[in-house]
Design a protein around this nucleic acid. Structure first.
Lengths: 118, 118
DNA sequence: ATTTCAATGGATTTGCAAATCCATTGACAT
DNA sequence: ATGTCAATGGATTTGCAAATCCATTGAAAT
């Protein structure tokens, strides 16, 4: 996504080229692109001169949007120790420390867009 | 480790009991305990009334020590994008943002000990 | 109309960390 | 001395995300 953010607007990039540029296996990258396309962050075009481009300006795509699209959910309250019943009332030893750090990470992802990666 | 930090000093805990308490598979936990034992954070005792205990007070075992012992190396400069040639001179789009966050995590692990998890 | 090109998406395979198994070692209790 | 118990450590298996494969779909160029 940061790669696409740095290409000219309205210029499509083929999955294959992006794969080469990022050194991610082409077939695997395609899966990721599809997820991003399905969730509306990318606009896909088949055939001649096809490829992918951001579906809206880079400044309007936050990192949290990308994370959500690829199914990473930092906002789910998953215990660092993997305990099922960990919460503020019944905290694991690192519950509050972890909550702070997690909030920092999430806040960063919420307040930064692809445009910040220029 | 935080579990052991909250048991009485000089009281040994068997891997099997710790496995049950933490819901980590016993055989897998044994491997981790061995790593922690080998790197000097745990004192192991075989046989009757054997088990593991912290090899020094909880206040003298930092989280960074535990992380290093189980082979997680937050201080290695691993690019978030997996790029081999990413550094301050040739940064990836998230190099500096990531460096800040990484430093926060590492600083936390350096400045907190198991005693902070009471 | 036909050809070419690139995304789509489901089925399949691979790779490796996670997890298991078990024979061995060493310590304590009796 | 002997039996029991718990860690040790290497070999092996499992599980699942990562990666691959390929037939299909749809779009544009000619």
């Amino acid at each position: 996504m940061t790669y696409l953010a740095r290409t000219k607007p309205d210029e499509r990039v083929r999955a294959r080229d992006l794969a080469k540029a990022t050194d991610v296996p082409p077939a695997f990258l395609s899966k990721i692109m599809r997820a991003l396309s399905t969730s509306g962050l990318l606009d896909a075009q088949k055939g001649h001169n096809g490829g992918f481009m951001l579906s809206r300006p880079a400044s309007e795509i936050r990192f949290i949007d990308v994370l959500r699209a690829v199914d990473f959910q930092p906002e789910t309250d998953h215990c660092l120790f993997g305990l099922g019943n960990c919460n503020a009332q019944n905290p694991c030893p690192l519950h509050f420390e972890w909550a702070v750090l997690k909030e920092q990470i999430e806040h960063w992802a919420r307040s930064h867009s692809l445009a910040d990666s220029d």
